[in-house]
Amino acid sequence: MSGWISGLGAFLGRSAETTGYGLVLLGRTLFHLPHLLTRRRIRDTLDLCYTYCTGSFTVTAVVALFTGMILALNSGLSLQELGQEALIGRIVAVSLIREMGPFMTALILTASIGSGIAAELGTMKVSEEIDALRIMSISPVRFLILPRMVALTLVTPVLTIFAGLIGILGGMFVAYFQLGVGWMAFQNDGLEVLTQKDVFTGLFKSVVFGVTIATVGCTQGLLTRGGATGVGQAARRAVVVTFLLVIIMGYYITWAVLT
């Protein structure tokens, strides 16, 4: 019993420490933001944007397409019973743009990019590369963290918009071929009912999620200890922690916007 309690205490202590480290890291990155304006940092950042986009483009497209199709099918069949299948466009568009798009894009980026960042930085930490940078008076925040944070913060909204559009397309297919709702009806009821606020909420979420994925990945990477096991642990923790943060923050943002 006492072992259990002290274990919990240690866990809470470690979590608080990690959270503090992450917030300080985020603050220091913001502080270093002006340093982004050098040719080498811009190039690094654009390279990373390209890598992150290409690395998650296909899976995002497939997941988004099927999410849209599932949404349309599910809600479409229920609506059909009520004779309201014309509303399908509205349901698919709103839930994709406001909720599902940012959420699924964040999960995909967490699993593919966030864990990768943690593993990459973790390996650099355990093989003394981070120390080597410090010794050369190259700030690891400026050299490694800044480009990663900025790249992910840019890439996440772009991929989120892309996921939303692909998802709506999937929904339209299902609506047209399986439920007999015409393109125009879908569009009229779906896209036009979509308010600026919905789009803005989705984009805002995606930016917050992007920052979160990058911050957690970088934090876990930089806090890596030991060898290969430590690196594995960092990647795993990055995924778990980001998942939790994304879903919790997603709820609160929606709540704040709707009420």
């Binding site: 093989s127 003394e128 080597a132 050369m136």
Partner: peptide
């Protein structure tokens, strides 16, 4: 540090 060079055990 600018005036010091350091060779790491594994190159880093």
């Amino acid at each position: 540090r600018r005036r010091i060079g350091y060779l790491f055990q594994d190159g880093a």
